[in-house]
Design a protein around this nucleic acid. Structure first.
Lengths: 171, 171
DNA sequence: CCACTAAGGTTACTCAATAACAAATTGTTG
DNA sequence: CAACAATTTGTTATTGAGTAACCTTAGTGG
């Protein structure tokens, strides 16, 4: 089987990298994306986005809540969920349904297709934008008369790095 | 793009059908599957499976809990979650991550691949077992050095029947 | 300056899921 | 059959996920 050309938005190679720069870039792109869309990237929203980008690990809503609660005196669930909803709408973060968690999106293009590779060893999530795959899925559905509007594609497994390192215990 | 051969385990055509027979068959298969696997399909587990098969709509854990609570005097979350965990292990039910809900599986073969089509209009879920699609996804991951072990493929959209009926309001 | 809208604060709740331990049931073996 | 082991279920309690409803504050446009 031939593998369709695919864009790797965020790869596992990113495990070892200049993450500070990674975050800075993401925030800069976010500013632009919001400005273009006529949406406001408020301090709170910006901060939540920054926290999501704290690593390439998926972040849980209540973890964000705990951090915000330390920084500001007021932080309740709606605080973080509203910010996350906004960021999702603008396409700045994605929700990983199988984990109930969130990851930043490196290519904030509203409505772009995406698939996620989740390493069960190190927890890192990589985002793909394999249009061929997405089209193939829609086509399979269409063959049954089903008109697809949204796809949730999440793959669990072992990433390149963890495979190289072998089956070591996770610290 | 050519569409791979796919098996429709449970189709939207099933919306209008003899559902009583559908459930009976599922329970019979479950008995066999458990017997083969050397697992015990206890009355509780059997009842939960029956409730999940109550319709082709995904069922929420707390709805099951409410029903069980009416039938028996004792029913707490672990009661239903333990039964659901068991049924998932044996492959008799699937969890739909994007809905936090459960559906019965017509082909209880442990570890078989599956994809779900979720109609946002009528709520019905159809299960596919498109091996080609599954292989294609694994191959895309493998091309990045990622060894896939589990896939979550959930597609939202409008099913054949709802398309025919047009964009009517849902009662 | 006033009305309007968007954003965030606040309270309170429902649903999802699990931990930990106790009781009961079933299976097994001498 | 009695005794023990393993599995299943009951019970209590808690954490985590997500939302509803209402109120206050901050920007925006006439």
């Amino acid at each position: 089987m031939t593998i369709a050309k695919q864009t790797v938005l965020k790869s596992f190679a990113a495990v070892v990298h200049d993450h500070g720069r990674c975050v800075t870039t993401a925030l800069a792109k976010a500013e632009t994306a919001c400005a273009t869309a006529g949406k406001r990237l408020t301090p709170l929203r910006r901060r939540v986005l920054e926290l999501v980008w704290g690593s390439h690990l998926p972040v849980k809503a209540y973890d964000l809540l705990a951090i915000l609660g330390r920084e500001r005196e007021q932080a309740a669930p709606p605080t973080v969920y509203r910010a996350l909803d906004f960021l999702q709408q603008v396409g700045l973060v994605h929700r990983i349904a199988s984990l109930n968690a969130f990851v930043g999106c490196g290519e904030p293009l509203q409505g772009h297709v995406s698939q996620f590779l989740i390493c069960t060893q190190c927890g890192t999530v990589a985002e793909l934008a394999n249009l061929g795959l997405s089209t193939s899925i829609s086509a399979s559905a269409e063959a049954l008369g089903f008109q697809a509007t949204r796809q949730t594609i999440e793959v669990e497994g072992i990433c390149k790095h963890c495979r190289k390192r072998g089956a070591q215990a996770v610290q």
